[in-house]
Design a protein around this nucleic acid. Structure first.
Length: 107
DNA sequence: ACCGTGACTCTGC
DNA sequence: TGCAGAGCCACGG
């Protein structure tokens, strides 16, 4: 098999599963860590195809503003916020989280 | 190969 | 603070 569209997704998922509980990362950072600088949108596509029963901590991925950019769908937005709060992450209003405090940086 | 689309990001008003 | 435009990468028709 030469063409594996899953290859990119696989790499993206691998990065996301490294995000520790209580911390969050941005689409841009995940893309960069996956070796795809600037491909933040590609990360969104990778998460979009995730099954509902996935073990991947997709909820720890927010946009560059620390806000949830997940479309309503089946209440995924609410679920993301609930999961983050259950990990000790505090939300500022309905705006989002403080990246300054919860942003995860590999190092 | 061209064009439109998206769970993005940055800059400007 | 919020909205709009342009740039960005990869995918699907």
């Amino acid at each position: 098999m030469t063409t594996k569209h899953n290859d990119l997704d696989q790499r993206i998922w691998q990065v996301i599963m490294l995000i520790p509980p209580g911390k969050v990362s941005t689409y841009g950072d995940v893309a960069c860590m996956a070796g795809l600088p600037g491909a933040a949108r590609r990360v969104g596509r990778a998460l979009r195809g995730l099954p509902e029963d996935t073990l991947l901590p997709w909820h720890r991925v927010v946009n560059a503003q620390g806000r949830i950019v997940v479309p309503g769908g089946s209440g995924a937005r609410t679920e993301q916020r609930t999961r983050l709060e259950s990990e000790g992450i505090q939300f500022r209003s309905d705006l989002g989280v403080s990246l300054r405090k919860y942003r995860w940086r590999p190092g």
